[in-house]
Nucleic acid binder design. Sequence first.
RNA 1: GGGUGCAUAGCUCAGUUGGUUAGAGCACCGCCCUUACAAGGCGGGUGUCGGGGGUUCGAGUCCCUCUGCGCCCACCA
Length: 859
Amino acid sequence: MSEHSSNTPEKPTLDGVEARWMQQWEADDTYHFDRTGTRDQVFAIDTPPPTASGALHIGHAFSYTHTDTIARYQRMRGKHVFYPMGWDDNGLATERRVQNVTGVRCDPSLPFDPDFIAPYTGDVPKDHRPVPVSRPNFVSLCHSVIHDDEEVFEQLVRRLGISIDWSLLYTTIGERSQRASQRAFLNNLARGEAYQQDAPTLYDIDERTAVAQAEMEDRDVPGAYHKIAFHRSDGDGDLLIDTTRPELLASCVAMVAHPDDARYKPLFGSTVRTPLFEVEVPVLAHHLADPDKGTGIAMICTFGDTTDVTWWRELNLPSRALIGFDGRMAIDTPPWITSTGGQAAYAHVAGLGPKQAQRKIVELLLESGEMLGEPRPINHPVKFYERGSRPLEIVATRQWYIRNGGRDEALRNALLERGEQLIWHPAYMHNRYQNWVGGLNGDWLISRQRFFGVPIPLWYRLDDDCNPVHDEILIPDGARLPIDPSVACPEGFTDDQRGKPGGFVGDPDVMDTWATSSLTPHIAGGWIDDPELFARVFPMDMRPQSHDIIRTWLFGSVVRSHLEHGCVPWTHATISGWILDPDRKKMSKSKGNVVTPINLLQEYGTDAVRYWAASGRPGVDTAVDEGQMKIGRKLGTKLLNATKFVLGFGEPPAGAVPSAPVDLAMLSRLAEVIDEATRAFDEFDYARALERTESFFWWFCDDYVELVKGRAYGTQGDDAAHGAQAALRQALEIIHRLFAPFLPFVTEEVWSWWRVGSVHRATWPDSQPLASGGDASQLLPVSEVLGAVRRAKTEAKLSQRAAVDELIVTGPRAALEAIEACRTDLAEAGGIAQFTLSEGEPLTTTVRLAPSTDTRVGH
RNA sequence: GGGUGCAUAGCUCAGUUGGUUAGAGCACCGCCCUUACAAGGCGGGUGUCGGGGGUUCGAGUCCCUCUGCGCCCACCA
């Protein structure tokens, strides 16, 4: 790294630095990952692959900056930084976006139409009815839309100065991802960790797909209690229940009360008759029944909620499910309704959706007098798919699961143990993991009845009636992956056996997007395709992500890594906070308060936006704050000007070294800053590293530079000037490097004025050579005197150039010695004619200004 | 109901293992065209560190408790 003569611009500016250096970094491949290093030389980051859906969110700028500062720091420490980017383009988010911009809807029963053209490419009118298209047509539309989105995204990430090695780019729908995802699934299957089950499943009736526990959320929605009378079969009156879902009456299979409930104890074992449908159902006891809820006795339906599923399973009840995949009541009158009256009642609700069915049932109950009083409105929590708009229904379906400890204590404990092994930043985020894993109530449902995803790589034998025999799984050879079973043919079969009696059929489902993204270390690290690379990067060093996806992405990744490799997938989990809008409200698309970073980048510049982001403490929710960006902008400008000033002296002669006590003291303080920044970065506390560096830098500019300016200009002779210049340059060079992780553009700019190569490939500063000889504590009294002189002049409403006749300082010996040691510098900086120093406590400074104005300042 | 985080100047926040008079920026006010910087620089005031109790020579920092706000999980008849 040789110096060359400075080419400082006449008028330094931040304008245009982004474009210039983005291009240069790309041309120089500055962030290229050198894969020749051994594992301990590598720092590997499991970057979150964003859903590349058009606009970058300010939250991306926030959290990606955090990770990038760490990446840049590690790179300067000499690590081979493995910093890939991925696009999470598989899954429902993309499907929805494609539906919204092209005006189509996938109908897998349709045949492929090679000439199909989407009705729209952009804004679809509100009244447009989606055009049904075949699955291959739909998938191909998805591919073309995401391709465009991802180009835009890449430019934005580059513009944010994120030091990605773009040659490592992956997409979760790409071939590498599909291969890794299918291979991992087949490995799970072979080891018995993946299994299929036909069971009641929470199901989104709009998206027509099963949903995993991790993707559900509770929402408070209005509902109402309906008090309904069931007729005791012994004719001895009615049994009253409260229900929020009267529309499920026809699915009632039993009544249940707590075993100790004296009110109902005598009835256990007897039967009652359901209103309207006149079906006999037993009265049973179960400890989950809560005597304080409603009337203390509940009707069990298949299936109103998850408690119904538990009762159904544990009490061995029959299944009388009526709600179909579309959320509507079955058209045909079910066989368990045998009375004429019951059948007539059912005819009224057959085929209705949940809301209409409820209205109709209530109407019928009121007519028959079996509902007591009006419905009593309440608000109650109901399970929704997190992206859904109607409550989930419970439908019995065959689905694929991966064991995650939800039904197996040993596995659960093993996964809790993995959570212990991870180093969490901040540490308390570990609680969320424990909370989640401890509260799992089932295995991980990974099959989705969707289209744009990684197919489940299996076929099933068909029986003589063309029904799939789900126990007879046909598994592809691993070398063929990835495969699409709707196109590929199982070994030993020919394509003309597809869908034929005795032939085969492909599994129609795709995997949950998390089932693929839980393998990002494998996908990015080349698990299947590049084992040599994988051995160098896995387990990775760092997984950055936000706390809302601990239960999905983080936990899923731990599950996969545990099952596949018996280890955690990374050493550190760094959890970033959320972005709040300027009013400190959580930012969300639905609230319409989302801030796009592009305007902020244009107005303040990338470094300024990064400065704001890096000021947000790890894990802390942070509000968008343009004030911070203004400060960041100012900091960048200051760096330009300070650099221009220091370099303006030219290069001192070879051999010139800092020797004045104040110079050595400054360097010694800087050594402390290096140590603190280094320690902070090693603990992933970028914000602290920035804060230390920044406060040093402002002190450096305000006090130190002002103090030594005269000497550097040569007022005390050439040797003194060269010493000051050497100190200034030495400090400046370190300041450039300390700021480089935060302000990549402006630091690269100023570095280029006097150094060869990229500052981002320079080594992280070492405090060792600076620490000797200086005494940082000397700087305090010196700053004190400078401040006192300035204050005196300001209060006297004089220019800072005003002369001081006499400076009288009383203070402890050490302070006086420090002042004495840079007396000439102080005299020049403050225009001080005479010093009078005397020992005493406390430190007091009296400033006698030239026109005989006395100002006493001190404590 | 279980868990967890936060509460410091008008605002946004920093205060690393307890240690001298509690800090920064913004905002507000004043001064200064000082040869790096006027889209600058210099200077200024403001705090029962949420309430109460405890440990300690010493508490913003540790313990207990209460209050308020937020988040995660559970409950869903």
